[in-house]
């Protein structure tokens, strides 16, 4: 039970770390929100896409801090970290293949399904009308 001695020592460090990580998470979230607000004013698709990319990166950073510090993974033995991080790499292909095929399916629909194509250009009335659900239903049918 030699570790009781360590604990006093660690406790202070630990609390400091928690506060630091809390601060980082807060700042990251605020930056995300700021980007979100900024994006509302932007029309250009390219810029929007870039902002979205940045937001995703910030999201990964937040995930890193939660897993690494709150869930304490960074302080575990290296091999254990590997057993968790390596399988997560499967997500790369999981996401890539799924999204690529989703996109391809849209292109197929837009090329060969004239109804879908028409729907994707036809504007519907503004929201006030749409609010009443029965009408929406009819529109869909």
């Amino acid at each position: 039970m030699e570790h009781t001695a360590h604990i006093e020592h660690h406790a202070e460090d630990g609390k400091k770390e928690v506060m630091r990580v809390t601060l980082i998470l807060t700042v990251l979230t605020l930056v995300e929100l700021a980007l979100g607000f900024w994006m509302m004013k932007i029309e250009a698709q390219g810029t929007r896409l870039m902002i979205k990319g940045v937001i995703v990166i910030l999201m990964m950073a937040k995930a890193f801090y939660i897993v690494g510090y709150f869930m304490h993974l960074k302080h575990e033995i290296r091999n254990m970290i590997m057993t968790i991080v390596v399988p997560l790499l499967l997500f790369v292909w999981f996401i890539g293949a799924f999204l690529y095929d989703g996109n391809s399916f849209k292109n197929l629909r837009m090329t060969y399904d004239s109804h879908k194509k028409e729907m994707s250009t036809k504007k519907v009335e503004k929201k006030e009308e749409v609010k009443e659900t029965p009408e929406v239903k009819k529109a869909v049918e």
Binding site: F91, F94, F98, G102, N103, F105, K106, M110, K116, S120
Partner: peptide, 29 residues
């Protein structure tokens, strides 16, 4: 980990459907 794959599958299905659909509502609206 396994739960991450459950949620991952949901979110990826969502992403796939979004990629497969021509338009999408604006969340800010």
């Amino acid at each position: 980990m396994s739960d991450a794959f459950t949620f991952g599958a949901f979110l990826i299905a969502y992403g796939t459907t979004r990629f497969a659909t021509a338009g999408w509502p604006n969340p800010n609206e």
